[in-house]
Every structure is written in structure tokens, then in C-alpha cells.
Design a protein around this nucleic acid. Structure first.
Length: 430
RNA sequence: GGAGAGAUGGCCGAGAUGGUCGAAGGCGGUCGCCUGCUAAGCGAUUAAGCGAGCAAAACUCGCUUCGAGGGUUCGAAUCCCUCUCUCUCCGCCA
């Protein structure tokens, strides 16, 4: 396949096990018929063989022409003959390219195949809870929503956020802004100093190729902010720049598992979310997030998923926020993921757990699209790595969780102990 | 934004007048020899993708790839056009 001919599934695997693939995709509710794909793939190989034979002829005869010329003979008739051959090559190449691009269109829109440990389900209601940590506090009063707390403490300004930008934008003020910054630093310090991730500070805009690499494009263009008249997209998550850091590269075996983390702002158009979570910090067009990304050997990737999830959980535990871990079922699994654990933090005003982190193993889905490989041994052929990532954590939602879980009857908010060094030693927002 | 230079294999780097150039040479890597050990030295080897053959690995053969795309030509790393990126100088700027 042509360069940049990124494919999500292994063509050879699809070709030899179409029923397995089709069945797996049905389980996750993707309506995909592989018939068209298989027909095109058949065509592609037939044409490829044809055109390669013609090219071989051209190469051989061209050498012959050179030899004749050198020995002073006239290759006129061979040249004439090749003129025709070249024309045919051009035409056939053209047709081959059409088949390939049709094939690629299909492949790029096929989601990943769920791992065997992913429960089959019909909706998010079928996501099993894997474990819970912490006890939701018993309030002696009716807990207020974080937007009320934030406004009365004058640390969140929703009205001015919409004035200067629009709906789903928020201004943080004073200790609110400081809390946001404290969380960013606390999380980065934890992951770099305790969990062994290397800190990265990437661009907040990336080109289209990155978006294809991690699977946001071509299918989910409406979820992203695209800078007009450019090839730039605002990053919807640091997963995109971090995973694409090693696009088109071959890593050394000893570099794996490669663990990196970054703070970035994240930008999401939230198309199709009209009317959902319109108040507060839960669903914004711009929010901050610390992301964890790993590149792993295939055989280690599920162990790495567990430890990555644990790394994200450590943040919540450090902050003393009750949460649960759920295993996303086939119906709820994201497009690129083979398996995902969501961490859901307890929000008292909602009387429910809300997503605050999503930790996924993509297996080689993104690695294929982005062409990220490693060399298992000194002379071994390069293989696709497995990529993983998870939020560690979404900062805005963490602020919401802290305000709600640590609110006091007098309207103040206790600052979790681990954050106090980052908050100038303060114990409370008043 | 203006002017100029450049982009070649893991890295560095050569490649007038287009024709065994997938690409000299060096470094690095691997294997072997030599050596009491190390260093040095000697020899060999060292790109990727795709396809065909094979049950498959090994292997064999073919095609493609010298920043990307297009053009000229029987034939392009080499000539022409467009784009991208990098570097230098000037201007501007946090």
C-alpha cells in the first residue's frame, strides 16, 4: 500500500479471517460489510501484479537500450516499443491508485476490534463496575453544585466566559485559577517523579496526519476545531501530539515501554452534545488535561494498561476523591480502542459518578495508522508497537469534584492536603 | 514578511554532461579472526514497504522508495514545475 497508506486492521488478517473480523465488529455495533473491501483487495492485488510485470519489462528493456547505445547500435525500435509500454504503465498505475484509495477509505473508517475481556453490551448501562475506591461523604446539608460554589466563592466566572468567548467557556479567577494550576503541577509531578513518565510539552495544534494517526480523522471531523485556511487542528487531547511524536519511526526494543506525560489544553467542538451538561465545568470547549501515553511491546500491553490505569487512580486517591472503575462494554468503546477503563469520580450534587479519566489500550490500531514500530531484536523485522493512553486526569472535572466533595456547610472548600504545597500552604478556599 | 542555501540509508556524507545508483566513503551496529584482558587491527555483514512462490519460517524472484506531489524521457537521486520543511542573513515580534 502507498506510503501514508495507513490501515487500521491488518489487511492480510482481514483477508484470511473475514468472518472473525465481521463478527467482532458486529459485537461493538459497527455496521460494516467486508464484502466490498475483500472485492477491492482482490482487484488491488491483480492490478498490482499486472503493472509490476510491465514495469519489470520496462526496466529490463531500458537497460538493453543503454547497452545497445554504448556499443554504437541503434535501439530505435525498442524505444518505440517502450513508449507504448510506458503509456500503459501510467494508465494502470492510475487505476491501481483509485482502487487503493477506495480501499483506504473503507479501512480508515473501520473501528478497532474489542479485546476478549471487553464485555458485550448494548449501551453504557452494560458497563460493569470493576472496583470502587473511597466512600462518598455524608453531608449534613444538601451539597451544592460546583458552579454554585465556584460563583459564590468568586473563583469561577461563567458569565464572563461566555461574554469573551461563548457558551462552554469559563473564566477561572483567584484561587480558582490557582487551584487549576496547582492540579496541573501536582499531577505532572506525581507522574514524572513517582510513576516514571517523561514530561513533554507539545504544540497545541497538530496537522491532519496526526489526527488520522490516532483515529480522530477522517470519521470525527465535526468533533474538532480546525483552524481556517490551514492544515492545523486544535488538539482535542494530548494523546494526539504525544502518540504522533513517534509517527513514522522505529523504536529500539530497550526503549519500551516508553512512558510520556504532558499537560495541554484540550479543545472539543462538542457537536451533538447540545443540551447536555450545559452548566458548570463538566463539558467545555476548552479544558486542561494531563495525559499519560505509553508505547509498549505487544505482549506487555494489557499489563501496561492495568498499571497505567493504576497511575491515573493514584491521582484520585492522593486527592481523596471517591471513584469507581468501569470496563467499557462493546457498545460504549471508542472507535480506536481495543479496551478501555473509565475512572468515574463521585460528584455529590449529581449523586452519581462521572467520567474523569479514560484509559485505553489501542493495541496496534494507532501504530498501524501512524506507522510506529519497534525492532524486537538487533536483526529482527520491525513490528508495530501497542499504544496506550489515559487521562491523568481531566483538570476541570477534578476542580469540580474537589469543590463538590470538599465543600463545607459555611460555603468554604477544604483544599486536599497534597495540593496545599501548590496553593501557597493554604488549607481552605474562602 | 524580504534575500539566499539546503533536504540522500541508524548517523555523517559523495553523487559534471540523465543509463548495473538502493546509491561511493566514513561513523555506528552485528558476526568472525587476532589478542593474556582491554584498546587497536583485519575480514565479512548491516534499509524499509509491498507483491508472487511456499502450509509456514527461512529463502528465492519482482516492484517501489534518495523531503512530498506532478512533468520531460525508452530510462531520473540526477533535468523542469509546484508544495512542505530546515538553515543563514535582514525586518518584525512574546
Amino acid at each position: 500500500m502507498a506510503r501514508g497508506g495507513s490501515t487500521m486492521l491488518d489487511i492480510k488478517y482481514v483477508r484470511s479471517n473475514p468472518e472473525v473480523v465481521e463478527e467482532a465488529l458486529v459485537r461493538r455495533g459497527a455496521r460494516v460489510s467486508l464484502d466490498e473491501f475483500l472485492t477491492l483487495e482482490e482487484q488491488r492485488r491483480a492490478r498490482l501484479v499486472e503493472v509490476e510485470q510491465l514495469k519489470n519489462l520496462r526496466n529490463v528493456v531500458s537497460e538493453e537500450i543503454a547497452r545497445l547505445k554504448k556499443s554504437g547500435q541503434n535501439p530505435e525500435d525498442l524505444v518505440l516499443q517502450m513508449r507504448d509500454t510506458s503509456l500503459r504503465i501510467k494508465q494502470q498505475d492510475e487505476q491501481l491508485r483509485e482502487v487503493e484509495s477506495a480501499l483506504e477509505q473503507i479501512l480508515l473508517e473501520i473501528p478497532n476490534i474489542p479485546h476478549l475481556t471487553v464485555p458485550v453490551g448494548n449501551s453504557e448501562a452494560d458497563n460493569p463496575v470493576v472496583r470502587k475506591w473511597g466512600e462518598p461523604a455524608n453531608f449534613t446539608f444538601t451539597p451544592r453544585a460546583h458552579w454554585d460554589i465556584g460563583e459564590s466563592l468568586d473563583i469561577l466566572d461563567f458569565a464572563r466566559g461566555s461574554k469573551i468567548a461563548g457558551a462552554r467557556f469559563t473564566v477561572y479567577k483567584g484561587w480558582g485559577a490557582r487551584l487549576e494550576r496547582a492540579l496541573v503541577n501536582y499531577m505532572l509531578d506525581l507522574h514524572t517523579e513517582k510513576h516514571g513518565y517523561q514530561e513533554i510539552f507539545p504544540p497545541f495544534m497538530v496537522n491532519r496526519q496526526c489526527m488520522i494517526g490516532t483515529g480522530q480523522l477522517p470519521k470525527f471531523a465535526e468533533d474538532m476545531f480546525h483552524i481556517e485556511n490551514t492544515d492545523y487542528y486544535l488538539v482535542p487531547t494530548a494523546e494526539v501530539p504525544l502518540t504522533n511524536l513517534f509517527r513514522e519511526e522505529i523504536l529500539d526494543d530497550h526503549q519500551l515501554p516508553l512512558k510520556i506525560t504532558a499537560y495541554t489544553a484540550c479543545f472539543r467542538a462538542e457537536a451533538g452534545a447540545a443540551g447536555r451538561d450545559t452548566r458548570g465545568l463538566i463539558r467545555q470547549h476548552q479544558f486542561n488535561k494531563i495525559e499519560l501515553v505509553k508505547f509498549s511491546r505487544p505482549e506487555d500491553s494489557y499489563a501496561e494498561l492495568e498499571s497505567l490505569t493504576a497511575d491515573a487512580e493514584q491521582v484520585l486517591q492522593g486527592l481523596g476523591l471517591p471513584y469507581q472503575v468501569i470496563n467499557l462494554c462493546t457498545a460504549d468503546l471508542g472507535f480506536s480502542a481495543a479496551k478501555t477503563y473509565d475512572l468515574e469520580v463521585w460528584l455529590p450534587s449529581f449523586q452519581t459518578y462521572r467520567e474523569i479519566s479514560s484509559c485505553s489500550n489501542f493495541e496496534d490500531f494507532q501504530a498501524r495508522r501512524a506507522n510506529i514500530r519497534y525492532r524486537p531484536g538487533p536483526k529482527a523485522k520491525p513490528q508495530f508497537v501497542h499504544t496506550l493512553n489515559g487521562s491523568g486526569l481531566a483538570v476541570g472535572r477534578t476542580v469540580a469534584a474537589i469543590l463538590e466533595n470538599y465543600q463545607q456547610p459555611d460555603g468554604t472548600v477544604i483544599i486536599p492536603e497534597v495540593l496545599r504545597p501548590y496553593m501557597g500552604g493554604r488549607e481552605r478556599i474562602i
